[in-house]
Design a binder for these strands. Structure first.
Lengths: 231, 231
DNA sequence: CATATGTTAATTGTATGCAATATTAGAAAT
DNA sequence: ATTTCTAATATTGCATACAATTAACATATG
């Protein structure tokens, strides 16, 4: 099936590049250079950028070009809080509807995380962690909710990656995963929801604390627009 | 400020037309006729369609054009279930964080619903109902979550409208609103969440029952792709 | 030296043309 | 009459050209 449009492939490529950290928040994505880089005209590039903009991945300001979104610390916290609520919902449903297939998928992903954590391989853990969370999304047996969850997960990946650098955070994360699995398997939807909520939100809180440089205050976001500039 | 691009205006216009029911699920949105209708070239039309596609409002299939999405009954149920979870989250946060402004906004919207319901004006209730729910989204004091909620609310509007036609449903809906408000004001986040969840999900369940033509089975969605065709 | 202003350069927005693909209509065969 | 294959038709995808707007820069002025 080689019937896929260029614009769609480009959308994927640009998204991947952003997720991989090749383009940092604040970087400009001008159509001409991207067109040259991918060996196409501006048209499919534009179409890809507009779609990514509609998905919230990047900011496309009329007449002023596209940049990788630079959320304020407050906004970032809100995004993590929303992620926490959505993942909670997935866990709640998963606890009620768990099937053997979904259980096995979560187990496999969890085992992979365990290995990566033991070896302190944060890059690998980052990948396995994504699979673990995706397995939970699917276990909700609500494919629409799962899609929404995964989309937001991707949008936050740039920030989560930074958070998972610390080694002890890796082990703590793994332990939380175990607790989540336990609750889902016990069919305790309430507990699964709160454990997932806390697991996700602690990342967001730690991250915005990190960005703010001070703990416990998420109101002051004046210094937000000063981050990353293109090389 | 007349600096807004055509593509953006078109996106809004097409979205409005879909929400207003001018284009029904399944209707084809071909670039040429839309271009003629709006007096522009295909380019900005294409850009608008691609953006709407990225937001999930319409389906753009490569080389096969765009159509207004035709969710299967199962998919529709999943969307309502997701809406229920997101609205729950909004209500839960609102119950914890309620401010006088947000309280007043909800009250105003609720009063408007009350009048429309008493008069049996379902078209008016439809509009006021949207405001009421939007007031709850904002009361969550998480603007990102509120945006997500509103976006999904818009996507479902075509289906909710049909549901609200019945008069007794109007009065029941209003009563549920009262209960939701009560729980939020009492600061009972748990109760607010479950009441909102049930309020939203009952719509989804009733609707998919309606689509299926049979109650209690949401598995058989074979007849899904048979709905609306362009005139 | 800082600020304002006018001109130039760079970038985005839209239109048009052509190529590639899908859809439809028609003819032929069963 | 129904099905299948082929050819005509229509529609989408991409490239290019031009127009409109913004950003950058130099120059003048306080």
């Amino acid at each position: 099936m080689y019937t896929m449009s260029q614009a769609f492939r480009l959308k994927q490529s640009i998204e991947d590049a952003v997720i991989a950290g090749e383009f940092l928040p604040g970087d400009r994505l001008d159509e001409a250079s991207l067109a040259e880089r991918f060996g196409v005209s501006r048209t499919p590039i534009r179409e890809a950028l507009l779609q990514l903009g509609a998905e919230g991945f990047i900011d496309v300001r009329p007449r002023r070009g596209a940049i990788v979104s630079v959320p304020t610390p407050t906004r970032l916290f809100e995004m993590f809080e929303t992620m926490a609520e959505i993942e909670s919902a997935c866990g709640r449903l998963a606890a009620r509807r768990l099937t053997p297939d979904n259980d096995a998928a979560m187990e496999t992903a969890h085992r992979a995380c365990e290995i990566a954590a033991r070896e302190g391989d944060s890059e690998q853990y980052y990948a396995d962690n994504r699979n673990f969370h995706e397995a939970i999304y699917r276990a909700s047996r609500n494919s629409f909710l799962a899609d929404q969850a995964f989309a937001l997960h991707k949008r936050l990946s740039a920030y989560r990656r930074i958070q998972l650098r610390a080694r002890n955070r890796l082990l703590q994360s793994l332990q939380e995963h175990a607790g989540i699995l336990e609750a889902i398997r016990a069919g305790d939807d309430q507990l699964a929801a709160t454990r997932l909520h806390d697991h996700v939100l602690v990342q967001g809180e730690r991250f915005s604390d990190m960005v703010l440089g001070l703990a416990g205050d998420r109101r002051s976001d004046a210094a937000a627009s000063k981050s990353g500039t293109a090389k």
